[in-house]
Design a protein around this nucleic acid. Structure first.
Length: 495
RNA sequence: GAGCCGUUAGCUCAGCCGGCAGAGCACCUGCCUUUUAAGCAGGGUGUCGCGCGUUCGAAUCGCGCACGGCUCACCA
């Protein structure tokens, strides 16, 4: 511990030492707490004037302010329920305890305050402290009380400090938890069974992404962190669970951006005897339910937009939407080369060696996605970029797939699941050829999954949604890092 | 991966056509028994991200590096 301490850190360590010399443990094992700050405030509800309640409350929390006026002082403590003012004075505490508080208790310390409640002459509910105890000494000064902590890097690296001083950040993460709860409520109420499937998988699949690779020593086996839950949840549909869902973490070894984190939280659900039309209806109902439950409204503000989540949402055929927005009819360009030329002709900047599927995807993300502010389902995607979706009846080229967009972001992806094992095998083989041709994100062959399908999977509708992005929408945040408690950053450089 | 911007006190930020390191909050000393961004008087506590260079002299100019942010690429 040769780390240089700042003046303020030295000061706090000195205060801690002085407490010890006075026989006070700066980190006592137990404390007395009878009320949270919010519960204490409730006690004064309906009590008029400066009347003092006779009941003594023991509250505890982090000291966030301290205003000393000679022989008396005010301060606030903050716990998980809120803030509460306390009043300390020589009269109530006695000389020794008052001066100990005044000199040795610093902003940020976790303290306990006990005493009756009263209102100050400005009406603020306040604990008249009969005792103030140290519960945990804080050895670092808190960020500035008025501007809070703004440095984005510090906010992410030391999220706990961010949470202490930035109330709006706290609220975002409380909202996030409520969103997840509301999703569970919605699905549980409809008979969905929540399950847990492997995170370590021998073959990754269910999405197009590069995986994280790891290794099990005992099994002498290479394993992948899952990029989706899809293939395992479908095995459960084969097994006879007609409605299943999972909420958990996916891992994709890809770039980081305002809407991408290497690990992110996904909801997937699968419903037997349903198709993508059923799933669309369920989706808009589910999002509306969550917004109503968490925000109390279906009209949300996202950046400069007001978004109305009221069902039904607009359905647009992907092909038609692309014609409207780019003039390009993808059906007229059956191969990568001709589509590439068409995109170049409208001034698009695309990779020359991209596959046709990737070209279509870049059209979607460059020309459609940013414009899809109000909730919209883009429906009927090309089969070649939908290797797990069932073909649309009467079409060789389209699959029964939709993606939901809100606020210019892709929120979810769903389809009528492909349950024909032979067709699925052919799709895997095509994907395998793409992989061999250099597409690292092409889907891998999964024999075990094919075996499962060959036992017979009922017609099924499936759905996947990024919960982080949904949280961004419902909390009006413009970066995924603002809704992930501990986003990934490069290691802090050595000092 | 590329371009642009940023990194100065514990925090929020000035200073940047080279010339003594600054403010507010926080902190320290003193005063103050109903304050709440308490107040009054005094005190600057610093590896100006790191390294190299230019210069009589670098927080300031140049180059390199690190970390972060934004945009783009990538992410069906």
């Amino acid at each position: 511990m040769s780390k240089r301490l700042s003046e303020q850190e030295e000061q706090r360590r000195l205060h801690m030492e002085q407490l010890r010399q006075a026989g006070i443990d700066p980190y006592p094992p137990r404390c007395t707490r009878t009320h949270t700050c919010a519960e204490a405030l409730q006690l004064l509800e309906g009590v008029d004037g400066e009347e003092t309640t006779s009941e003594v409350v023991h509250v505890a929390g982090r000291m966030m302010s301290k205003r000393v006026m000679g022989k008396a002082a005010f301060g606030h403590i903050q716990d998980g329920s809120g803030r509460l003012q306390f009043y300390a004075s020589v009269d109530n505490l006695g000389e020794e305890e008052y001066h100990r508080f005044r000199k040795l208790f610093d902003l940020g310390d976790i303290i306990g305050v006990a005493g009756p409640l009263f209102r100050t002459r400005t009406g603020e509910p306040t604990v008249r402290a009969q005792s103030i105890t140290m519960l945990a000494k804080s050895l670092h000064p808190l960020p500035e009380k008025w501007h809070g902590l703004k440095d984005v890097e510090l906010r992410y690296r030391q999220r706990y400090v961010d949470l202490i001083v930035n109330e709006d950040v706290r609220q975002v993460f409380i909202t996030r938890t409520r969103i997840v709860s509301a999703l569970r409520e919605f699905l549980d109420a409809r008979g969905f069974l929540e399950v847990e499937t492997p995170i370590l998988q021998p073959i990754y699949g269910g999405a197009a992404a590069r995986p994280f690779i790891t290794y099990h020593n005992e099994l002498e086996q290479q394993l992948y962190l899952r990029i989706s839950f899809e293939l395992y949840l479908k095995r459960l549909i084969v097994g006879g669970f007609d409605k299943v869902y999972e909420i958990g973490r996916d891992f994709r070894n890809e770039g980081i951006s305002f809407k991408h984190n290497p690990e992110f939280t996904q909801l997937e659900f699968y419903q037997a005897y349903a198709d993508y039309n059923d799933v669309m209806r369920l989706t808009e109902e589910m999002i509306a339910y969550v917004a109503q439950k968490v925000l109390g409204t279906l009209k949300i503000v996202y950046g400069e937009h007001e978004i109305d989540l009221t069902p039904p949402w607009r359905r647009r055929e992907l092909r038609q939407a692309l014609i409207e927005e780019t003039g390009i009819d993808i059906e007229a360009y059956p191969d990568a080369e001709s589509l590439y030329q068409a995109i170049r002709a409208i001034g698009g900047n695309v990779e020359p060696k991209a596959t046709r599927g990737k070209l279509i995807d870049s059209l979607i993300s460059n020309y459609l996605e940013p414009k899809l502010i109000q909730p919209t389902f883009l429906i009927d995607y090309p089969v070649e970029i939908s290797p797990l979706a069932k073909r649309k009846p009467g079409s060789d080229t389209l699959a029964e797939r939709f993606e939901g967009f809100i606020g210019g972001m892709e929120i979810c992806n769903a389809f009528t699941e492909l349950n024909d094992p032979d067709d699925q095998e052919q799709r895997f083989l095509e994907q395998g050829r793409a992989y061999d041709a250099g597409d690292e994100e092409a889907h891998r062959m999964d024999e075990d999954f094919l075996t499962a399908l060959s036992y017979g999977m009922p017609p099924t509708g499936g759905f996947g949604m990024g919960i982080d992005r949904l949280t961004m929408l419902l909390t009006n945040r413009d970066s995924i890092r603002e809704v992930i408690l501990f986003p990934h950053l490069r290691p802090r450089p050595a000092p």
